[in-house]
């Protein structure tokens, strides 16, 4: 069993296609990722980045294709996975506090009627501390800033104690302090040998943050090490003509223009 875990890739996707109504959102996507990497999923709006993540997690039905987590179907490997959904996916006016939300990450480890207790509380507090939110444990979640809410979601994924993490735009709309807290955390996860897949929008930070990059626009455009795949030519191909390159102080900086 141990051996098997070592040999199988954290995530293998074969010929994945997904459609909403009649419109294909993902077509024939196949790739396999390496353990212990930070992987950025990059592509224009509507490229199917979030859909890829949801389909891999079994949250939405797929038309065809196979998803394997450490060599086995997702259903058998749920406990190896941590998930950070988009912050806007929930109503933050829900009657609960930060600690309580983080404890929800342990619900998968509790039995049918099991209730979170002292152990879950302790684990949740540890994870809140890791994201710098220990002082906000009893704060009602609607009174947290966007960045703080994002960090609570992150802590909830951490407390799941997974091996493979899926994060859907954790950097979207957060302040600089939170962005720094998140990236420090991602690197910490990597040091522990965990694998993290991140849907990412800011092209300027891709090279700094990620070991590998997955370029997506309905179809898989490229997947590989950042320095090999994250090139001007590949980005042009992924984004179509909607990409402008700004030269500034010798560094090529990238920006997506509206189109």
């Amino acid at each position: 069993m141990k051996n098997h875990l070592k040999t199988a890739a954290p995530l293998t996707i074969e010929g994945l296609s997904v459609a909403y109504q009649k419109k294909p959102v993902l077509r024939g996507v196949s790739f396999s990722i390496e353990e212990g990497e930070l992987i950025g999923v990059i592509g224009p709006n509507g490229a199917g980045k979030s859909t890829l993540m949801k389909a891999a997690l079994g949250l939405i039905p797929r038309l065809s294709g196979e998803v394997l987590i450490y060599g086995k179907p997702y259903r058998q490997q749920r406990r190896l996975i941590g998930y950070v959904p988009q912050r806007e996916s929930v109503d933050w006016d829900f009657p609960t506090n930060a600690l309580d939300v983080v404890m929800m990450g342990r619900y998968g480890h509790l039995g049918l009627f099991g209730r979170p207790g002292a152990k879950e509380r302790r684990l949740a507090m540890e994870c809140l501390a890791k994201v710098g939110m220990a002082d906000f444990a009893t704060r009602q979640i609607s009174q947290l800033s966007g960045g703080q809410q994002q960090r609570v979601f992150l802590a909830r994924a951490l407390v799941q104690d997974a091996k493979l993490y899926f994060m859907d735009e954790p950097f979207a709309g957060v302040d600089a302090a939170t962005e720094k807290a998140i990236i420090t955390l991602l690197q910490e996860l990597k040091r522990q040998g965990k694998t993290v897949i991140v849907v990412h929008h800011d092209l300027a930070t891709v090279e700094e943050y990620f070991d590998s990059v997955l370029l997506l626009n309905v179809e898989l455009q490229a997947y590989g090490k950042t320095e090999q795949v994250f090139t001007q030519q590949m980005l042009q191909q992924t984004y179509g003509g909607r990409l402008a390159f700004l030269e500034r102080g010798g560094n090529a900086r990238l920006a997506v223009t509206k189109g």
């Binding site: 959904p85 929800m104 619900y107």
Partner: peptide, 15 residues
């Protein structure tokens, strides 16, 4: 509680 707050996450946990 979890299904009322975050059904997507609940589904991810296998609920």
């Amino acid at each position: 509680k979890l299904v009322s707050f975050d059904p997507g996450f609940a589904r991810g946990l296998g609920y």
